[in-house]
């Protein structure tokens, strides 16, 4: 690890001015991803701005939305009363991720910004467009069993030199993507809000960029608008072992039901794309319908028409389809 200077700002403004003054600086919060990246030489900030002492831990419900400070810990969010009562899908997704220890360290902001788990990204000796643009995507013709099946447009996200088939590793973000979430960002020119769908990027021409965050900007909170999904939401995670593993595929399903029919439906998929993959058409397909396995199968297969396998992950298309069915069954309570 390259030596770094440790900085501990006391205010948000101070933090942002530090990050703006030193382009080679990086913010650190929980550190659960960044410390590993630094140990492996993938991130090598010469200045580390420890934001843990900024007043960004608060979780509160105000007006029509739940506001969660960027420094709120994953474990605190998962057990917070307002989260459990208003957005149980978020709690479920958080608890499906990582481990008790990691959830105690990882922050909401850090979770939004965690980097892919693609093995090629983590090994300096292997090619990776995300780590080192222009070196090629190691996974594309390599080991890609766990890689993406949904891409921007029709292609793999650009030409060969810029392609990246890595997937976003977060569970939390998949739940947030299914809900109406805004990311609150502070920078030198003040505060701005970005809908979560526009926060993460698909790997187009610049796979090195995971998000649309600008240099020096700091995520200060997320806000989730109230909804009527609490009774019929489900987070399903499929993985290679029973716990403490990244998703092969995950499904966040949020439905509103009344009188045995579905009146509103949101869904996002994890482990299948460079960002949490929102299934936009699902609402149209389910609205007004009575739940049935047959319907769910049609709905699942509809979205899978645009999925595209690489060399080793064709199974993920069927697995995702099955997982959508399973998640919808669980959310609607049909057997």
């Amino acid at each position: 690890m390259k030596p770094f200077q440790y900085l501990r700002p006391k205010t948000i403004a101070e933090a942002i001015s530090m990050a703006t003054d030193y382009p080679e600086a990086q913010y650190i919060a929980g550190g659960t991803n960044l410390v590993e990246l630094m140990k492996r030489g993938i991130a090598s900030p010469s200045k580390l701005i420890d934001i843990n002492h900024l007043p960004l831990k608060k979780i509160e419900h105000r007006y029509d939305r739940l506001r969660i400070g960027a420094l709120a810990l994953n474990s605190d969010v998962a057990k917070h009363k307002s989260v459990l009562s208003r957005q149980p899908l978020l709690a479920q997704a958080l608890l499906a991720g990582a481990s008790g220890q990691l959830r105690n360290m990882a922050t909401v902001g850090g979770n939004l910004l965690q980097r892919t788990r693609c093995s090629y990204f983590y090994d300096l000796a292997l090619p990776c467009n995300k780590r080192k643009p222009g070196t090629g995507c190691g996974a594309e013709a390599g080991i890609n069993r766990t890689h993406a099946i949904f891409f921007a447009g029709n292609g793999f996200g650009g030409n060969e030199k810029s392609s990246c088939i890595a997937v976003h590793p977060s569970d939390m973000c998949v739940a947030l993507a299914a809900l109406d979430t805004e990311v609150v960002i502070n920078g030198t020119s003040g505060e701005r809000r970005v809908p979560l769908k526009d926060f993460h990027r698909l790997s187009t021409l610049q796979p090195e960029l995971d998000t649309n965050l600008q240099p020096g900007e700091l995520v200060t909170a997320i806000e989730v608008t109230d909804n009527a999904f609490a009774q019929h939401s489900h987070y399903l995670k499929v993985r290679d072992r029973a716990s403490y593993a990244f998703a092969l595929v995950s499904v966040a399903a949020a439905l509103q039901m009344d009188g045995g029919r579905i009146w509103d439906a949101r869904m996002a998929l994890g482990g299948v794309a460079h960002k949490p993959w929102r299934y936009w058409a699902i609402d149209l397909m389910l609205r007004g319908q009575a739940p049935s396995e047959k319907l769910f199968r049609e709905v699942a297969e509809h979205e899978m028409q645009s999925a595209r396998a690489t060399t080793q992950n064709a199974f993920k298309i069927k697995l995702t389809s099955n997982a959508i069915v399973a998640a919808l069954k669980a959310a609607t309570g049909i057997s």
Binding site: R117, S119, Y122, G142, I143, R241, S243, A245
Partner: peptide
């Protein structure tokens, strides 16, 4: 390419 406990899975409690 599986060179850590995140990619080389061994059983966990669950």
């Amino acid at each position: 390419v599986t060179t850590d406990f995140a990619s080389y899975h061994i059983p966990v409690h669950a």
